[in-house]
Design a protein around this nucleic acid. Structure first.
Lengths: 343, 343
DNA sequence: CGTACGCGGGAAAGCGCTTACCGGATTCCC
DNA sequence: GGGAATCCGGTAAGCGCTTTCCCGCGTACG
């Protein structure tokens, strides 16, 4: 691997001069030398060692993003927004997948700190786990104390900047819509119990119920993984234990798609016999049949805003900024009034 | 930011000893000192500077992955497989999105080289561009010459290891299936012309046609972006210029989904009036209606294999290994025999 | 009791780069 | 024409860590 010294030697200049030319330092350098150095760079296919540069310059350049899983469309949309902004700022982004393991989340914060990340973005739901939350927060504070910026998406328990989607309001929108259509027996296909996203969305639903003089009982809610197969298994359970539901609220679109798959298998008409709703409005929500009624969250935009917050925090510095983002109900074909009561 | 020297000072030992304890070096150290150092680490919340370590140790630890776009399910599946293997090997993976800009691909190779990546994985289609291909190859060779490993997925023009999906055979499978069903007027919704993936899949289709004594004319093929909206617009064009097609072959699932959307809008029955096929078998292919007949590529597995190849190249070293992966026809509900000829 | 040896710990030399500082050669102005 | 100002380029001191080499001590042995 060619080093700067090699280039300098070949061009017959000092490493200092070579460095100045290669990095376009403000210090003026004769044209002749510049040409010689550039030629040497070309001949040796020299690329500066980024680690050595980072060490010598002592200023951070990369940014880290911690997500549950980039292959989940929810996160890949967010990531797309993040990346766009990071690239505009000339930042390299390091993506870390926790696969929903809180332990890994902690590890990755250390790893990013070790790698001198300029900022850490935490995307995805928090966990209902006091101890974990405290530990994570402590680590983040240490990171911030040494000049790191942190922004979180979709959780609120940390000291950094935050972009908070209206999960609760979204849940309420869904609930209101279903009650308005006349549904009374609703089943909920929920994500993991310990995720704050799950409980926030559920709370919105509960509030809508209360406003319509009803309430959600525990029997109506089935918890499972926040993905297609979780949605499928929870729906199967629900159909077996609460066979008379007329609407199934899935707490994200992936689960809703799992629900649709099970309903299709069992030959249950959607929305004729059972209405189904999702949450997030991922791109595919339009393409399943029937197209999903869901709540839109501007995911890519949320990612972009979080990155912006992390990269150029608004005044006053060191005061966490919280940006709320609205949810919007998207009516499509998977919802309709309930069928006339067979009883 | 606490440094190793700070820790050493606090524990009353030399930096050398501190380093040995923290990294669990083979050199034995008294238990008392170990405890003191570990305590200091804890108190100072010390995390070693990864760049300094990398510089001092002088051996590569990260691996880089260059993809078109992680938010595209095709790549996120591949990435999932890659990550799994990388994590098993304790490697940090740096994901780079080119957004299909060849220029960026070149830049990222440099960037990864600068960051001392142990391996570079190039995923995604190559480009039909002689000069670009040569330039890229030259860069990769330089990287390999300095001990870097490279593996490519889905292209064949480079000197590293390769995992090659049976794009052509897959195209042939689709073609054969359609001809077998009795289709004669087929339209192709293709990806960008300059991508090798497009031409490979098309060639398979052409071969199937030839075997059935037919051929594909240029008028039957519409090129567009390799995503949903590309699929939609190409399908619209096709329906306008070739209104009598009885089957639409989309060259990937995203495009097929776009095609289905347009057909649905126009009230055209699938597969009653027109059959539609995809390619890749992304998870959603089962969930659209009608479920897509497509060709399955084991994407996550391909990613895993590429990473394995890059991380522990099989003997003999320095000889590019090529692994071919099979394509499999998945019959679902989007294909059927053509309707009786109206003429 | 003296020497050899093993063992735990420290001093110091780098890894590849940046950058403050310094110094020799021009140029400039009075 | 001489001293100051001005340029350009080089020298060297780090950035934070690892690791080789060496040294002093305690033990075992002759």
């Amino acid at each position: 691997m060619a080093t700067l010294a090699d280039v300098a030697r070949r061009a017959g200049v000092s490493p200092a001069t070579a460095s100045r030319i290669i990095n376009g330092s403000p210090k003026p350098v004769t044209e002749a030398l510049r040409a010689r150095v550039l030629a040497a760079v070309e001949e040796l296919q020299y690329v500066p060692n980024a680690h050595a540069q980072q060490l010598a310059r002592n200023h951070r350049s990369a940014v880290g993003v911690i997500v549950h899983d980039v292959s989940d469309p929810y996160f890949s949309e967010i990531t797309r927004g993040l990346q766009r902004v990071a690239t505009e700022h000339g930042r390299l982004v390091i993506i870390c997948n926790t696969y929903r393991d809180p332990e890994k989340e902690l590890e990755y914060v250390e790893l990013l700190r070790a790698n001198q990340a300029a900022a850490i973005i935490l995307a995805g739901s928090g966990y209902h786990d006091e101890e974990f939350t405290r530990t994570l927060d402590a680590k983040l504070r240490v990171y911030q104390a040494t000049g790191g910026h942190v922004a979180v998406i979709g959780r609120h328990e940390h000291s950094g900047h935050a972009v908070i989607p209206a999960n609760e309001a979204g849940g309420q929108l869904i609930g209101a819509e279903l009650f308005r259509l006349g549904h009374t027996r609703i089943g909920v296909v929920a994500g993991p119990r310990h995720l704050t996203t799950t409980s926030d969305r559920l709370n919105g639903l509960r509030r809508a119920a209360r406003q319509h003089g009803r309430k959600l009982s525990a029997r109506q809610i089935v918890y499972a993984d926040f993905d297609r197969s979780g949605g499928a298994s929870a729906t199967a359970t629900l159909l077996d234990t609460q066979p008379d539901v007329t609407a199934i609220v899935a707490l994200n679109d992936s689960m809703a798609i799992g629900a649709l798959a099970v309903l299709r298998e069992r030959g249950i008409d959607v929305p004729g016999r059972i209405s189904v709703t999702g949450f997030d409005d991922m791109p595919i929500a339009r393409d399943v049949t029937p197209a999903l009624t869901t709540v839109r969250l501007p995911l890519a935009d949320m990612g972009a805003r979080a990155m912006t917050l992390a990269l150029q925090p608004p005044e006053p510095l060191n005061t966490p900024h919280i940006e709320h983002v609205d949810a919007e109900l998207i009516r499509r074909e998977s919802t309709a009034p309930p069928p006339p009561d067979p009883r």
